[in-house]
């Protein structure tokens, strides 16, 4: 059967990996090519790179990072951050990315999802969605979690899937960086979708992965800092999840 994916995420700024808490306060966490290689050796199922500056300059740096990683790492690579046009996507795919994640640009112009899916195929279009809880509903935020859109998450998911998103990367801003666990309430609410959901935000301990992969329908769990600072090694995590009965590739 299809296994659940463990996905390390590298936030990239000026060609280096950085990690913040609740989207702010950045610390240097190493060289992206070196980290990607280590994660690959530890049986990461996929690697996500997020360009958190997303300027024209950083986009060029990102293409170089992707090219260098793709020469050495032979697992799926997803790149996100500031992607706003078919040209951006084409350049990334031609540099060795397998999928691209779009976020703010999709909210500003939902038609972009349709266009990208038609040109490149749904399988390489990931829509990243950042959400925050307000009373009893989760609302979508853009621009690195700083701008409220007022859009309710389920209506947004319906739209992006209809337009051809092949996968959803859903980050809970409330739990991101907290290391207190994934937002189980959120992923339970989302239930069954036609496309895979990757859960993100809040990973701290092994049990957090076991909970989100075992108790909700998500296809994978993404984390950054717990892996960068070697609090959890991916291979140890995967072995333990396997022992707990989660379907895992080893």
């Amino acid at each position: 059967m299809l296994t659940k994916r463990i996905i390390p995420c590298l936030d990239i700024k000026n060609g280096r990996v950085v990690k913040g808490v609740n989207f702010i306060g950045l610390k240097d966490a190493g060289c992206p090519v070196e980290l990607a290689r280590q994660y690959n050796d530890q049986l990461a199922d996929e690697i996500v790179f997020l360009d958190i500056t997303a300027t024209n300059e950083s986009r060029q740096t990102m293409l170089e990072v992707v090219k260098r990683v793709a020469r050495e790492v032979f697992i799926p690579l997803t790149v996100g951050g500031g992607i706003a046009s078919t040209g951006d996507v084409k350049a990334l795919l031609n540099s060795g990315a397998d999928k691209v994640a779009i976020n703010s640009a999709a909210v500003n112009n939902p038609q972009l999802i349709t266009e990208l899916a038609e040109i490149f195929g749904s399988q390489c279009i990931v829509v990243a969605i950042d959400v925050k809880k307000h009373q009893n509903e989760w609302l979508v935020y853009t621009h690195g979690g700083s701008k409220a859109t007022g859009i309710e998450i389920r209506s947004w998911i319906d739209q992006v899937v209809r337009r051809g998103a092949g996968e959803l990367l859903i980050t809970s801003i409330d739990t991101d960086g907290s290391r207190n666990g994934f937002d189980l309430e959120l992923y339970r609410l989302l239930g069954q979708t036609r496309v895979p959901i990757i859960a993100s935000g809040g990973a701290g301990r092994l049990q957090d992965f076991a909970d989100v992969l075992g108790l909700t329908n998500v296809s994978g769990a993404l984390a950054a800092s717990v892996f960068h600072y070697q609090q959890l090694s991916i291979i140890q995590l995967k072995r333990k999840l396997h022992r707990l009965g989660v379907r895992i590739r080893l």
């Binding site: 059967m1 299809l2 296994t3 199922d45 069954q192 979708t193 036609r194 496309v195 895979p196 994978g220």
Partner: peptide
């Protein structure tokens, strides 16, 4: 239900009578 299409991710392949794969099973993307 529980089986989105595309089938995307790592899944197990079980081999039988293969000349190229020398293992019984393995995970592929």
């Amino acid at each position: 239900p529980h089986m989105p299409v595309p089938h995307m991710g790592w899944n197990k392949v079980e081999f039988n009578n293969s000349k190229i794969f020398d293992c019984k099973q393995g995970y592929y993307y």
